[in-house]
């Protein structure tokens, strides 16, 4: 099913160099229609270069790229009408009002959305008559998203759409993105926030050193689902859990164990606690977070993980 014909974005062997620096060393990527794909990677890994080539802002040195069936390097106005773009730092005219700005951009597209509909979607209805320069940073970012969707694009590029947002503004932005997905739009998103990727993305792609180093869902990427699980709990300092669980002390009254069989070991642990009348405080099962996996994949904390 995931063939180039079915995909909104299809990239094969994409390479790009800046002088003697190889920014992209053969990137392969397929994003099917209607999916949200999160592209993760450290600064300088090639995220922005990849996205800007897909958007048509930069020319590639080699490889095959199609976006909605068109090569973005040679795309015309018709193609640009089907794509919405939120860049990291793009402004809009500061002296126009929010509604004027959306109406101006709507005029560029053959089948734009209603301005009022977009205002409601990005939560700016109250601010429709305010000048852009009077908006807060979070509101300006929402206007960025509004401008990108006013043409009713099939595909949306969001480059770090919530950087600098406070937590509630981020939740609101996520709601907007969920609504767009519900409308069947395809979205390619870059972000530094793991919870954002986890909350939004159907597909997570990690890029490092100009290559895709892992791809999967937020739950399975980097074999996250198969990586070691830990059980942690604390109990009265005078008691000790059964020796066959091989739990080790973790602080004054805390314990950590790595189960060989989670279900059976939990049964042993709770059975012992009930019969011994011990309260297992703070009992929890921990899996590596997406951030742990990401840091491992991108090498930043590979050593730290090895030591565990």
């Amino acid at each position: 099913m995931d063939t180039a014909q079915d995909a909104a974005i299809a990239v094969r062997g994409l390479v790009k160099a800046y002088g003697s620096h190889d920014a992209l060393r053969g990137v392969d990527l397929l994003v099917p229609y209607g999916r949200i794909c999160a592209l993760l990677g450290p600064n300088g890994a090639g995220k922005t270069t990849t996205v800007e080539i897909l958007e048509g802002f930069r020319q590639r040195d080699g490889g095959a790229v199609t976006v909605l069936g068109t090569d973005p390097a040679h795309a015309g106005a018709e193609h640009r009408a089907r794509v919405g773009i939120v860049l990291q730092s793009t402004g809009v005219e500061p002296y126009l009002s929010v509604a004027e700005t959306l109406a101006m951009y709507a005029g560029f597209y053959p089948h734009p959305r209603e301005v009022d509909e977009v205002l409601a979607l990005v939560g700016l209805t109250e601010s429709r008559d305010r000048r852009v320069r009077q908006l807060s940073g979070g509101q300006q970012r929402r206007l960025d998203v509004g401008v990108a969707i006013v043409g009713d694009p099939e595909l949306l590029f969001l480059d770090e759409p919530t950087t600098g947002f406070d937590p509630s503004a981020r939740r609101e932005a996520w709601d907007v993105i969920h609504e767009l997905r519900a409308l069947g739009r395809t979205i390619l998103l870059t972000t530094h926030y793991m919870d954002e990727a986890e909350n939004l993305a159907d597909q997570v792609v990690v890029i490092a050193g100009g290559r895709i180093v892992a791809e999967g869902t937020a739950d399975t990427i980097g074999s996250r689902n198969r990586r070691a699980v830990e059980v942690r709990f604390s109990c009265a300092a005078s008691t000790e859990p059964p020796a066959n669980l091989a739990a080790r002390r973790d602080g004054h009254d805390g314990w950590t164990l790595r189960p060989t069989d989670l279900t059976r070991d939990l049964h042993v642990l709770t059975g012992w606690a009930i019969s011994a009348g011990v309260e297992l405080e703070n009992l929890r099962i921990e899996r590596p977070t997406l951030e742990d996996v990401y840091l491992h994949l991108t090498g930043a904390s590979a050593d730290a993980l090895e030591e565990e």
């Binding site: 802002f57 640009r80 009408a81 773009i85 860049l87 793009t90 005219e93 951009y105 597209y109």
Partner: peptide
């Protein structure tokens, strides 16, 4: 510098 020109380049406006 404000990125307005770059944004316009990504729209169908010629």
């Amino acid at each position: 510098d404000a990125g307005i020109l770059k944004r316009l380049r990504g729209t169908p406006l010629s």
